[in-house]
Design a protein around this nucleic acid. Sequence first.
DNA 1: ATGAAACTTTACCGAAAGGGTAAGTAACAG
DNA 2: CTGTTACTTACCCTTTCGGTAAAGTTTCAT
Lengths: 110, 110
Amino acid sequence: MMDAPTLDLMFHALSDSSRRGMIDRLGRGPASVTELAEPLPMALPTVLKHLNVLEASGIVQSTKTGRVRTYELRQERLAELERWIADRKAGWNITFDRLDRFLTEEEPEP
Amino acid sequence: MMDAPTLDLMFHALSDSSRRGMIDRLGRGPASVTELAEPLPMALPTVLKHLNVLEASGIVQSTKTGRVRTYELRQERLAELERWIADRKAGWNITFDRLDRFLTEEEPEP
DNA sequence: ATGAAACTTTACCGAAAGGGTAAGTAACAG
DNA sequence: CTGTTACTTACCCTTTCGGTAAAGTTTCAT
């Protein structure tokens, strides 16, 4: 069960199209800062900030080897988010309606 | 296929726990502004802003009857978001690996 | 016709977000 | 040991965000 602050960070991380672009890129395998920055129309330090946001949210993970830092996607985290949405999308309507009918002793549906 | 600005709005809408609380509430059926505001520790105008954010993103929809405005969830939109995440979670790795092997005429896996 | 209920609008505030420059450090390549 | 590559840090600037109070509007009940 993901807690509220984590959900804040993850959804916020996804709310920017540059960051989503990086995620798309990482979907095809790990990449360095420079590789991730290359298609983006912004300065390197700005890219770094985006990557920090992504990593702080847990969507992405990085390790440094020599002078290059390599980022990779953490699909499990995306899976958790997907689950969160799936739960809301479904809605608890039917279940609660049935429960309510049961508790109030009304007629079952025809 | 949802466009970038829409994704921005939807993910941003979900990045606040008060707004997610409203979504949870709406998962059990439509509700008025007052009902949605009731559990939240903030002034009405603030709640209104949150609802506007949710509605602008398309996650929620409202109609006014008399003096009360009723909000309801739009699960289709959540379904679209879920799909977006699912696509990234899966990763295009396998497909591209196979394509790459095919294009470069390497040996197939043992 | 009056008043309460249920929003709505306006105006303002402090903090955080997204962007940039400039300068700094760390590891290679020669 | 010097230059270059690949990040990293430190600030600065502007816009957006979440929140407020106060005043306005529209309905509904009496």
